[in-house]
Nucleic acid binder design. Structure first.
Lengths: 203, 203
DNA sequence: CCGGTTCTGTACTGCCCCGTCAATAACTCG
DNA sequence: CGAGTTATTGACGGGGCAGTACAGAACCGG
């Protein structure tokens, strides 16, 4: 009975994510989204609502994928938890540069652009930051259980510190600070964790 | 002979800085700037050029003031260098919240918004980040001279790490992460510096 | 008091943008 | 094969935007 859609909702959202990440919220017009997704303006409105609704949906889509990725990178057995943390900290340095299209973290970008005056976006962004911090804290706890990190350390503070560092590296990388400096800073931060003698003598 | 200006260039630039920080580049119209500064559009064009020129000038103005402030906070005698570093790291946590108008670092904001496709802005931003990193590195060196930090440590990496952490805290604070968590993360980062036994036993 | 020079405000133009609407196309069930 | 339902397209209107142009106001030396 009904005419079927000719587009895949997921694909459209991913294109919209790229567009918003490239141009920001205020800098992206509906025509841009229309061009990026291949959908006409009418179809966009019919299927996704107005510009702000599209934006929130793309933000949700990004968060969904980002959290999947963060889980993949940090969840795992206790005995390699410290290695996962190490890799994650270092990866932050090259995140912007490795990324195919040189985007940084979308949540970070929009925390600064619309975090103040867009309550819906703020909620989504706070959600992803909180969850990433939680995943990091879990990974720290795993490393503590395995005896690689001081069991008396404040895992929550360490998680927040690592997350903060990663977001900051996005900013500096976008600002033009070189990868060498960021790599050295990341390694410095890792060495500053309360690593146990057991880990240091082994590593 | 000529009719004198009724505005102070500095004051106008400061108002423009506030406006751009509040709304971003794409989100700020010339009417917004006109309203914020009290100048008509004609005066703006005659005195400051077009929108992008105004923006670059405001960015320069911000950078000028930010670097003055960073010098004030970090320059000083060797024996209190470690305390200045400590205070600076902790202050990053409350930067956004302490700030009267809850802005974060302007350079960080625009590194993410226009860093990719605005070469002039990129240069200014890279300049302030590089200089802040240098000031931090100098302060680290001072603390090393005084025996509070391991003299073998890589001061440049530490400076970059601290700067990265500060920019990241702006992002997380804007994203809604609470000040308590950020304070704890900042203290964690400071304790992770290669502090000497001499400092720890004293402090 | 007056003229020249500079500043200031407003009105204007052309463009883009958001959101909507009506007409058209595609599909499936009967 | 036709009718009803839904997707899609392209065009339209109201509004805001950047940048310009022009007329008037303010000032100061003579």
């Amino acid at each position: 009975m009904p005419r079927p859609r000719t587009f895949d909702e997921q694909t459209v959202l991913e294109a919209a994510v790229r567009q918003f990440r490239a141009s920001g919220y205020a800098g992206t017009s509906l025509d841009d989204i229309s061009a990026a997704t291949g959908l006409g303006r009418g179809s966009l409105y019919a299927s996704f609502g107005d510009k702000h609704t599209v934006f929130i949906k793309t933000l949700h889509e990004y968060v969904r994928q980002a959290l999947i990725q963060t889980h993949e990178e940090l969840d795992g057995p206790d005995d390699t938890a410290i290695d996962r943390l190490h890799a994650w900290i270092l990866s932050g340095a090259g995140f912007v540069l490795r990324d195919d299209e040189r985007f940084g973290c979308m949540a970070g970008k929009f925390a600064l652009e619309v975090g103040d005056h867009d309550a819906q976006a703020h909620d989504v962004i706070l959600g992803v930051f909180s969850e990433q911090q939680r995943i990091l804290t879990d990974c720290v706890a795993a490393a503590q259980r395995h005896g690689d990190l001081d069991p008396g350390a404040n895992g929550c503070a360490i998680g927040c510190m690592i997350l903060s560092l990663n977001r900051g590296m996005d900013v500096l990388a976008k600002g033009g600070i070189g990868q060498d400096a960021l790599d050295a800073a990341a390694e410095q931060a890792f060495q500053g964790l309360p690593l146990t003698d057991a880990y240091r003598s082994r590593g």
